[in-house]
């Protein structure tokens, strides 16, 4: 297969790499990456942003299929429990946050989920958020999650080992 000279899929990951290289060559001014932009947004702006992204979802399950570390999720966080079958796009933002929490313990931040997403949702940023912030902060950065699901997430992880891993990393 020949190189694809034009129109490579410009994922968030690709953009970040380009920015990194350009910055090291002194070609561009400092510019906030998506995560920094999100932190500066109001709750409503964040909601609008993620809503526009997540409603592109066609529920191909590629983010799960391609994940190198994905394992069967715990009972209380399974899609069967929270996500209606056959509905496209799946309800905001439950599908995507649940998936991100399915791999909380094992994610290696490889970005395969974003690279394979047919509609270009910035899933790597979502992984960054769930990996480095405690849940109460995550539910502000990706606002609008049903309280029952919030509770299930917090309960599962605190129940498992008393406190969430990586909470110390939180800013």
């Amino acid at each position: 297969m020949k190189e694809n000279p034009e129109n490579p899929a410009m994922t968030n990951i690709a953009v970040n790499r380009i920015i990194e290289v350009s910055r090291s060559k002194g070609e561009i001014e400092e510019e906030p990456v998506l995560l920094q932009k999100l932190i500066r947004m109001s709750i409503q702006e964040r909601r609008d942003f993620w809503d526009a992204q997540f409603r592109k979802c066609i529920k191909c399950y590629g983010c799960i299929e391609m994940c190198p570390v994905y394992l069967e999720p715990p009972e209380s966080l399974r899609f069967e429990r929270w996500i209606p079958k056959g509905e496209v796009p799946p309800p905001y933002p439950a599908f995507h946050l649940l998936r991100a929490y399915h791999v909380l313990d094992v994610c290696v931040l490889c970005g395969e989920c974003e690279l394979t997403c047919p509609v270009g949702i910035p899933l790597k940023t979502l992984q960054d958020i769930t990996q480095y912030f405690p849940p109460e902060k995550v539910f502000e950065l990706v606002p609008g999650l049903d309280e029952d699901i919030q509770k299930a997430i917090v309960e599962h992880f605190t129940g498992v080992r008393g406190q969430l891993r990586r909470m110390d990393y939180a800013v």
Partner: peptide
């Protein structure tokens, strides 16, 4: 597995293809 260097699918597939 999707094919990254394919000019149309670019490493992506839909639920049927997968």
């Amino acid at each position: 597995n999707p094919v990254r260097k394919h000019p149309v699918s670019r490493g992506r597939l839909c639920v049927l293809g997968r």
